[in-house]
Computed example of a mutant assay.
Amino acid sequence: MNIAKLLEMQRKLDAHIEKEHPRQYGEDRLEKKILALLVEIGELANEARFFKYWSHDQKPRIKQPIYCRKCDGDGCYKCDDKGIVGYKNPLLEEFVDGLHFFLSIGLELNISDEEMVTGIYYVGSSLTYSFNKLFRCIGNLSEAIEHGARADIVEWYNITFNLFIDLGETLGFTLDQIEQAYFDKNKINHHRQEVGY
């Protein structure tokens, strides 16, 4: 993954969001980004479904139809006879939503691509362990932001970011897939800002 390129794309998206949604007096946008990251990781776990011991359906959501808006499922030249124009991967989409917030948090903390250390692997014993550890590390990052020195913040950011990337690979995504999905979702996020999302 080209971290420098992703950070630059995220910087432009963040600027677009700031223009459309200026910070309010006293607003702690960094805290909101951390909460949003936690929510996205929760949504990722929900799509992964592995932890739902109470359900017979524990398969991840990796293929969801996209229905034609033109014909409402009746079939037309844009879709098949079931009204399907294509498929999306909800699991990968949730992962990439989390990546957007990770990068945005890094920018908010003024962490440069040179300070980001990638490729550190923290393979967990299970997906449950990996998700729980990621939540704990985000808490540690938040504490470092509130009380720590710059070196502690950068260290916890790197640990947490690498745990997240490792989790993506554990879920079956390649770095190329993650990067392409980020590019695709970034375009959607810009469009959402343009249409008053």
Rank of each mutant, 00 (worst) to 15 (best):
M1P: 11
M1D: 15
N2I: 03
I3E: 14
A4M: 00
L6C: 06
Q10G: 03
R11M: 09
K12H: 11
D14P: 02
K19W: 02
Y25E: 03
E27M: 06
D28I: 01
R29H: 12
L30V: 00
L35N: 10
E40D: 03
E40F: 04
E40G: 07
E40M: 00
I41C: 08
G42L: 11
G42P: 00
A45R: 12
E47R: 04
F50I: 12
F50N: 09
F51H: 05
K52Y: 14
K52E: 10
W54T: 11
S55M: 15
H56N: 09
H56W: 13
K59P: 02
R61P: 06
K63Y: 07
P65H: 13
P65A: 15
I66V: 14
Y67W: 15
C68W: 07
D72T: 01
D72G: 10
G73H: 13
G73R: 14
Y77A: 06
K78W: 14
K78A: 02
C79D: 06
K82Q: 15
G83V: 01
V85F: 07
G86L: 12
L92K: 04
E94D: 09
F95E: 12
V96A: 09
L99W: 07
F102E: 00
L103S: 00
I105N: 03
I105V: 01
L109P: 04
N110I: 08
N110W: 14
I111K: 03
E114W: 06
E115I: 07
M116Y: 07
G119W: 07
Y121P: 00
V123Y: 14
G124R: 09
G124P: 09
G124W: 00
S125V: 02
S125Q: 11
S126D: 08
T128D: 13
Y129I: 02
Y129N: 03
N132Y: 11
K133R: 08
K133I: 13
C137G: 05
G139H: 06
S142G: 00
S142V: 02
I145K: 00
G148K: 04
G148F: 04
A149H: 06
R150A: 10
I153L: 02
V154E: 14
E155W: 11
Y157V: 10
Y157L: 02
N158M: 10
L163P: 04
L167K: 02
L167D: 13
E169P: 05
E169I: 05
F173P: 10
Q180C: 11
Y182M: 08
F183I: 12
N186E: 03
I188L: 13
Y197W: 15
